[in-house]
Write a protein that binds this DNA or RNA. Structure first.
Lengths: 250, 250
DNA sequence: CTTGATTACTGGACTAGACCACTTGCTTTT
DNA sequence: AAAAGCAAGTGGTCTAGTCCAGTAATCAAG
């Protein structure tokens, strides 16, 4: 059809393949490329955008990876009927997660002290027996209602003087990025159901022995160094964790 | 250093980039490429393997995607200090998951009937109001101990005569692949804590009101068509779900 | 009507180059 | 001794092709 080369900024700092990804994504979202119809071939797209075929392949690979399209050798490329996504649990913290759900997050800091790491924490954070950590306990609220009780451990060597920072107003993850240049890259989480202890129940304003969802998370940097270990206990009546699983693809 | 071109089978049906990925992965796992040391540059690798640079880039991109390496522009490529992995919840079914934990899975089929889809199921499976589904209820055991109670819904149009198959011995996912050519590609899961109802408690051999982990899963094909909707209720004292989360990367 | 070959088109793989932005370490100049 | 400049090396991007294997539609021969 018509040329789309005009859409691309040739001397931008944004790579061409990223611009193409964005352009196609937009067309999919606007419904200009629908689920049943024929998607243009790689050679088509290369000509339209005025780029090499390898460049459009890079863009298509990205779209495929995000689940927007799928491809069949010898047949063609197709738009996937998108339905899910929404609020899958990703690598954001409590504040970001609640905000994305349209709730107003807040916190009460109940405890913030430097102490020796216990065995479990030392293992999670890959520390020696005598290394020190910050232990941070917070009650986490959404729209001023208690939602979760969270205990976070951070290696003291990575974030000295953390106890001088007001974590009531600042997102912990923001602080870690801005003050200490700690970028989180991936995480391992384990979830289990439990009955609320009296202490937890009191904090969350629920009955003792009510079901709660306990999430244990260890966050890692890109080099796979553990940054944070956290236990979060959510009220079962107000919280549900959602995940997106995919096959080993690419 | 030495040439590695001999490692590659030039006329194999396995692409070169995949062979390179495998070769490097092996070297990392064997410790020949350690976490602190210098990883060979793209140009190095291209020369050693006797391939083009774009080809080794494809291999490196894959390794990065799997979290084995990370890269810094202008600096180099590095092996990530791998630690985690183990038994993260992936797109396998109960049988596969238990087997990978070293437990022997088995099932008791309590119910398998064709019926009209209720509203929730119709929505999950993208069906019309009158479409029929198979409802499959199973008690799932690990080493002959009750582990979970599972209710599965499958669109009847995709797997006719499912009720003629013995699901005690066959993995449902195996049947779907082999008999109906239904390949699962990704899934959405939501997890919440709850208290066991009397019925569930009886099935699982636990006390009523004990905490249980309820997992709701919808599995999709590559074209993003919903294949299966399932509710699984796990004993909290024997089961914990673990996930791996990563940033939007490529 | 069915079967089989041809053909055009698809995505996948791969090459051999090029240029760029960035980092780092060395060297030269202040 | 400190600062500025340079050069080498890195990953990131991009090109303009080639060849291959799989699909699907067409068309001719049985």
């Amino acid at each position: 059809m018509k040329s789309m080369a005009n859409v691309l900024l040739r001397n931008s700092n944004v790579p061409l393949h990223a611009q193409i990804t964005e352009a196609l994504q937009l067309q999919i979202e606007r419904g200009e490329l629908k689920a049943g119809e024929n998607f243009p071939s790689e050679r088509d797209l290369a000509e339209r955008f005025g780029v090499s075929r390898m460049t459009v392949r890079q863009a298509l690979q990205r779209l495929r990876h995000e689940g927007l399209i799928y491809r069949e050798r010898g047949v063609g490329t197709f738009v996937a009927n998108r339905k899910i996504d929404v609020h899958t649990r990703n690598l954001s913290g409590f504040s970001e997660e609640m905000a994305s759900l349209g709730l107003t997050p807040s916190s009460r800091v109940l405890h913030l002290k430097r102490e020796k790491a216990d065995q479990q924490v030392a293992q999670d954070l890959d520390l020696e027996a005598d290394d020190e950590v910050f232990r941070l306990e917070r009650l986490r609220l959404a729209d001023d209602e208690p939602m979760a009780f969270e205990t976070t451990f951070l290696a003291a060597q990575f974030c000295p003087e953390l106890d001088k920072i007001d974590l009531t107003k600042n997102s912990l993850y923001q602080v870690l990025i801005e003050k200490y240049n700690l970028q989180m890259h991936h995480a391992a989480e384990s979830l289990e159901a439990a009955a609320a202890t009296r202490f937890i129940a009191g904090q969350l304003g629920i009955k003792a022995n009510s079901p709660v969802l306990v999430v244990h998370r260890v966050v890692y940097s890109e080099a796979n160094e553990p940054i944070e270990s956290a236990h979060t206990t959510y009220r079962a009546d107000r919280y549900r964790a959602t995940f997106y699983l995919s096959k080993n693809s690419l």
